[in-house]
Structure formats: structure tokens, C-alpha cells
Design a protein around this nucleic acid. Structure first.
Lengths: 195, 195
DNA sequence: TATTTTGGGTGAACGCATTCACCGAATGAG
DNA sequence: CTCATTCGGTGAATGCGTTCACCCAAAATA
């Protein structure tokens, strides 16, 4: 709302320029194959400037992955079809797998190979969605109420991340989507309410 | 058996010297805080020599973690107490957690943050032990035979690694042992044979 | 308008893992 | 014993991520 000074505008443009140049080069040649210097040369900025906007080379990927929330809000949540809550949750993780696959094995390996607290950021939208679904499932007595929605959310994400980590170890050489489905089905079953 | 030449003997001693110096320094100051140069100075060898024996700095930790097999064979397997196979498996993962805790959070973070195929090495003794237990459990009809022992082994390890990865993300700030137990109990339950 | 302050921008310098061309003594063939 | 080969060992050089002391024009202040 407040008018931007020319300097602030410049700053935003510089950051975007660096971000986009980085992504396009990384996509083209792979994360390890490109250097900060190459990025900066192509983006027409100095190396120092890169570090003014990003904590590290890895930070570029972290920024990328942050967009998962947006993706889930707009593409995933509105399109869940199953009506039984356990099935919806499985579907949710299908989409989670899809998102990771589409991000690309190279990027995912890089992300899982750097301690980033991205995955465990409290209150992250993506997690909140799941917590809400579990809550709703408990209300409908489809999911056990013997554990809190937060606990179950964490539990499920730990398993899902375990699988993605494994997928990275295998260089993305199997079908993550299928495997995720196969795996989450019985896991979610653990929390199904029994009469 | 074959007699070693003085050169071969020398080589073994050099490698050990490097390995032990590395570990002691890493334990004292932490992985990132020590340099190859420091290690080599203290061990009385050249930098080039380090790389003659180890692929990378990380390789030291990989060597360390390889000893898990030995530990499992001698310390864990002979001391499993529970008689029902599902319970034995849970106990097995308790020990797995213990081993990881005793390895130290610093080392574990480093290990999980480097693509090492250590964890998924086919025919790894540690994995084989579990596969055998599952096989035995199937024979006693305590574990479902609808999946192969290999499949179940992989499944369980993916979950366990997911938890350890999470523990690393949280800087080892919770009790891994407890959490592992709590988590594997229902997961192993998934594969319990029902009449 | 004259001044101070601020913050985007710079690139040389640094630290450290990794590589490489090159020893020289132990080994083994003749 | 003699010569060629092998291989453990060397440390300077390389490459790259990251830091730092320093600019300078825009913005704020007077």
C-alpha cells in the first residue's frame, strides 16, 4: 500500500532477478554444476549482492520449496474427492508425493541433504491443513480420538518424509507416488476409529 | 594369512592413525569445527595421504557407522528378550534408536545430511537380521504372510529412518528411544497376523 | 538547500575440501 | 645385484561458498 521508494523497488527487482536466474541455471545444469559466480554474472549483479538476499546457495531451494503451501492451498485442498476422512488423508499424501516428484529429484536430494527446519516449521500451512482434516475426522468418529490431531499429523509426516528420504537415497528411481499410496494406506489405518 | 610386506603394514597403520585422530578430534570439537589439515597435522601425515585412504571428510563418519553391523551382531541380537515376534521387532528398533543416540546427534546429522547409500545397502547385516526375524514370525503365524519379509523390513526401516531424520531436524532435542518405541509399536502392529 | 544517515551494491580476500603432478623407497622381475 | 615398476606419501594449487571492509547515491533530517 505504502508507496515504494525507488531503492526498495530496485531491491525487489534485484532479488527476483537473482532468484530467477538461479532457478533457470540450476534446472538447466543441476545444483552442483553451477556456481554463485555464474549466477551473478548472468544476473548482472555482484557476488556480495547474492548474499545480501540469500543466506546461502541452498537458500534458493528453500525459497522454492516454501511455495508448497501455496500449491496445497490452491491446487490440492479444493480437489480432494474422497468423502471418508481416512481416504482423504491418503489422497492428501498422494498429492504430497506428486508435489515432491514435480519439484525434481535433484532439488529434493539437495533439500533433504541440508538441515533445514522447513519441514518442521510449526504452524506451517501444509501441516495445518492435515491437522484440520484429522480434527474433522475425529468429530465424525472416523479417526481415533485417543491421540491429538497434532500428534497424528506429526506421526504421518515423519513417515512420509521417511519415504521421501528413501526415495532420494535411491535417486528417485522408483515411483514415489505409488509407493506413498501403498505405504500411507495402512499407516492411516492405524488411526482409524474402531467401534 | 599371507605375510604382509612392510609397506602394506605401514599403509594399514597410516589409515588407522588417520581414522582414530579424526574421530577423537571430531568428538572433541565437532565435525565442522575441525579441518582436514588439523587432522593431518596431528596424525603426522600429509593432506594428500588422507585422501589416499578416504574419499572425503564424510567418509570417516561412514566408516564409523558401518560398525553398526558388528554392534547388532554382538550386542543386540543375543539379548532380545521378548518371545512374541512383533514385540521382539519393537525391541530391535529400541536398540536401533539407542545405537543412534550413542553415536551422537552431531554425527547423525552429518550422516543424514549426505547422500550415503549406507542406509540402503542391500544385504546389510543389520537388515538381514530383521528380515530373518520377520520370516520366523511368519512361520509362527504371528506376522502376516501377505507381504514378503524383505518388503516389511524395508517398510519398517523407512519409518525408523523417518523418525531419526526428524530427530536430527530437531537437533536431538527429544528422547529418540521413547519416541521410537511409541512409534514402532503401532507400525509393527500393522503386520500382525489376525485370525 | 546542505548535511547526515542508511542500505543496496561491490569484488577482493578467506577458509577449507578436494585434486594433482610429482617424489622416492620398497618390491619384484631378470 | 640391477633396473623397472609400483604405490604410499607429499603439499602446492584449485575451485567454490561465504565473508568483509568499503563505496556511493538515495533518503531522511535540519
Amino acid at each position: 500500500m505504502t508507496k515504494l521508494t525507488s531503492r526498495q523497488l530496485q531491491a525487489i527487482q534485484t532479488k527476483n532477478k537473482i532468484y530467477e536466474t538461479s532457478l533457470s541455471l540450476m534446472e538447466l545444469h543441476g545444483y552442483d554444476q553451477i556456481t554463485i559466480e555464474q549466477i551473478c554474472r548472468k544476473a548482472g549483479v555482484s557476488v556480495g549482492s547474492f548474499y545480501n538476499y540469500f543466506k546461502s546457495k541452498n537458500d534458493i531451494l528453500i525459497e522454492l520449496y516454501s511455495r508448497a503451501d501455496e500449491y496445497f492451498e490452491q491446487e490440492v485442498m479444493p480437489h480432494l474427492t474422497e468423502t471418508s476422512m481416512p481416504e482423504r488423508i491418503v489422497e492428501y499424501f498422494d498429492s504430497y508425493a506428486n508435489f515432491n516428484v514435480s519439484t525434481g529429484i535433484g532439488t529434493m536430494k539437495q533439500l533433504y541433504n541440508s538441515n533445514n527446519s522447513l519441514f518442521i516449521h510449526e504452524g506451517r500451512l501444509m501441516q495445518v491443513f492435515l491437522t484440520q482434516m484429522i480434527s474433522a475426522g475425529q468429530a465424525k468418529r472416523e479417526i481415533t480420538a485417543s491421540q491429538s490431531p497434532e500428534y497424528i499429523t506429526e506421526f504421518l509426516f515423519i513417515v512420509a518424509r521417511g519415504l521421501i528420504y528413501d526415495w532420494c537415497l535411491h535417486n528417485g528411481e522408483y515411483n514415489l507416488r505409488e509407493r506413498m499410496h501403498e505405504m500411507m494406506l495402512p499407516i492411516v489405518g492405524v488411526f482409524r476409529e474402531v467401534e
